[in-house]
Structure formats: C-alpha cells, structure tokens
Amino acid sequence: MKYAILVNEGPFNHQASDSAYQFCKHALQKGHEVLRVFFYYDGVLNGTKHSAPQADDRNIVKRWSQLGKDYHLDLAVCVAAGLRRGITEEVVAPGFRITGLGQLVEAGIDADRTIVFGD
C-alpha cells in the first residue's frame, strides 16, 4: 500500500505525532510505502530543529528525521501554516522541507490510503 500521512498537531501537547510515527514505522517495516508525511496546523511544529526535550524523553523531531533518513521519507511542512507559527527554511530540522499545501492534495491523489492523525 501507498500511504499519505497527515499530522495535525505539534509534538508533546498531543499524542498525534507519536501515533503517526508509530504507524509509519510499522507500515514501513511491513514493506508498505509512505509517499509523504505532511505536517499541517500545529503539526508544522514537528519540523523545528530547535526542539530540545530532556534527555530522559523521546526526541520527537529527531525521531522523524531519523525515520526520514532510514526510509527516504518526504517530510513536508506546510509553508502557510509554518509561516504563521515561525517554522521557516531557517529552522527546519534535517530531512524536513517546506512546501505548499498542494503537496498534501497530491499525496492524497497518489496514495492508496490517506490517514489523518490529529486531536
């Protein structure tokens, strides 16, 4: 299956990003394809390199970057939602890129399944 994943919420406040990550990890391990993980609404906050959680907690941003690297994932941060929240090219973490909302629609068209993780 080809998946498009939409993450609606930022890291930490809600479990949405954790659940999306777990879903992607398991889908990829099973041999499915994740065409794009699109970060929208406060979800764009998953893409900041300035996130620095305490050492005894998971690093949600780094974890996405690593999964992106391991599986060549497209981690797409919405430009309009990002600008609102101060997530710009200068602050995106490795593996993330800033792009237009059209890329979400495109992923929805190309994927077999689109799954939304929100609150």
């Binding site: 398991h26 889908a27 499915h32 077999d112 799954i115 939304v116 993780f117 929100g118 609150d119």
Partner: peptide, 19 residues
Amino acid sequence: DYDRFVDLTADKGTVQSWL
C-alpha cells in the same frame, strides 16, 4: 497491535479520523 492496525487500514478501504 500496530502491525494489525496497518493491516486494517489496508483491508478496510478509506480511513476516516473522527477529530
């Protein structure tokens, strides 16, 4: 479990999240 969650999304068609 998560593996079965993935299977369900593949087997059951369109997925709708109630938010």
